[in-house]
Design a protein around this nucleic acid. Structure first.
Lengths: 144, 144
DNA sequence: TTATGTGCAAAGCGTTTGCGACCCT
DNA sequence: AGGGTCGCAAACGCTTTGCACATAA
């Protein structure tokens, strides 16, 4: 069983302020991939005093400490805001539903191994990757 | 033999202004993945009058018309500016050298097929993808 | 001729930061 | 006690846009 985000903050020696505790809890309670604005809204519901600047500072700190993963899911044309998820969860990639913008997580051993092999073939040691698939639902059983 | 970017602009019925022609030529002459600022500098060398606003408008138009691919190569922690490349070139993915920020292109049939299969398994038809590998050079033959 | 595109400068958006007050350790 | 952190608001970097003028078709 994994330790909580708060525990992992302490483990890294990060000072645990009330705001960071709240933000960490909010992140852990988020099953989705919230952006800063969403995190701020959820944190404010717990502690109305938290400023959005603190949320920005905290997610940046957490990302740099390896506690959080930062993503950008916006479909290729266009930037899109940064979104975050707990880094401790089992590694996975994402499929973005182009119709609904829903984000589906998946994991595939084969593709992970393949990436290692490709990097090696190019003379590199793989340190990380980002794979995003963009798709639309299959209408199974004929045209709608 | 592929048509030039300018040809493909005409094919899509885009109005061919002097600035667009210049920008298209600059893009085609770019073997790398330039950002808007770089494109503007290169375009200005050809036609000193081009404004950066026009470069922004033009790359946006080209991306929306499917003539250009937009990428963001910045390593996961941090945003990074948008960078562009001719969409007609054979599809490929990118490996980013974390030490030098160099971008290496690669293509792998197997990984392309695998992505299709994964999307299908999840009930989706794949419309596009973005795969970025982040790595460091292998020091072959012992420690440096 | 006339819808479109352009340059300029100002505005927009997400994010970062300088500051004095405040809080964790 | 004292340095780290906070809230606020101003600044930031990249990108977009309103306007009057210029231009492709």
């Amino acid at each position: 069983m994994g330790e909580s985000l708060v525990d992992r903050c302490e483990a890294r020696g990060l000072r645990l302020t009330g705001q960071r505790r709240t933000i960490a809890q909010v992140i852990e309670a988020s099953p989705d991939h919230p952006d800063v604005e969403t995190l701020h809204a959820r944190a404010t519901a717990v502690d109305p005093g938290i400023s959005i600047a603190t949320v920005y500072r905290t997610v940046k700190l957490f990302v740099e400490s390896g506690l959080l993963d930062r993503h950008e899911f916006g479909p290729p044309p266009g930037p899109g805001r940064a979104r975050y998820e707990d880094a401790e969860r089992e590694h996975h990639d994402h499929l973005i539903d182009l119709t609904t913008s829903e984000v589906i997580e998946f994991f595939d051993d084969e593709i992970e191994a393949l990436q290692e092999r490709i990097a090696a073939r190019l003379g590199y040691r793989l340190k990380g990757h980002r794979l995003k698939l963009y798709g639309v639902k299959l209408s199974r059983g004929g045209s709608p």
